[in-house]
Amino acid sequence: MAVYFSIILVFITVVSGIIWLADKFYLAPQRQLKLATAQKQCEGELSPEISDKILEAPFFIDTPVQIFPVIAFVLILRSFIYEPFQIPSGSMMPTLLDGDFILVNKFNYGLRDPVARKKFVDIGLPERGDVIVFKYPVEPTIDYIKRVIGLPGDRVIYRNKSLYIKPVCLPTDTQCPEFEQVETTLVNKGEYSDGPVGLTRYTSNMPNKTHDILVNDEIIPRTPLYFKQNGTKRDEFVVPEGHYFVMGDNRDNSADGRFWGFVPEENLVGEAVAIWMSFDFERTEEDMLPRWVPTGIRFGRLGSIQ
Score class of each variant (00 low, 15 high):
54 I>R: 11
63 T>P: 00
61 I>G: 02
52 D>P: 00
72 A>N: 12
65 V>C: 05
47 S>K: 04
15 V>P: 12
40 K>Y: 01
68 F>V: 09
85 F>G: 13
32 Q>M: 06
80 F>Q: 12
26 Y>Q: 02
62 D>T: 11
76 I>M: 13
58 P>W: 03
83 E>M: 12
37 T>Q: 12
79 S>E: 13
76 I>K: 14
52 D>E: 08
74 V>G: 06
81 I>S: 12
81 I>V: 15
32 Q>K: 04
52 D>L: 07
69 P>I: 13
71 I>L: 13
51 S>E: 09
26 Y>R: 02
74 V>Q: 08
47 S>C: 04
74 V>T: 15
74 V>K: 10
30 Q>T: 04
74 V>I: 15
30 Q>K: 06
68 F>D: 02
24 K>R: 11
58 P>R: 11
20 W>T: 15
69 P>D: 11
50 I>H: 08
54 I>W: 03
67 I>T: 02
76 I>F: 15
25 F>Y: 10
57 A>I: 07
58 P>K: 07
26 Y>P: 03
23 D>K: 07
76 I>N: 14
31 R>M: 06
41 Q>I: 00
29 P>A: 05
53 K>G: 09
33 L>V: 10
61 I>W: 06
80 F>T: 11
51 S>I: 01
55 L>R: 07
54 I>K: 08
56 E>K: 11
30 Q>V: 04
71 I>V: 12
53 K>H: 05
54 I>P: 13
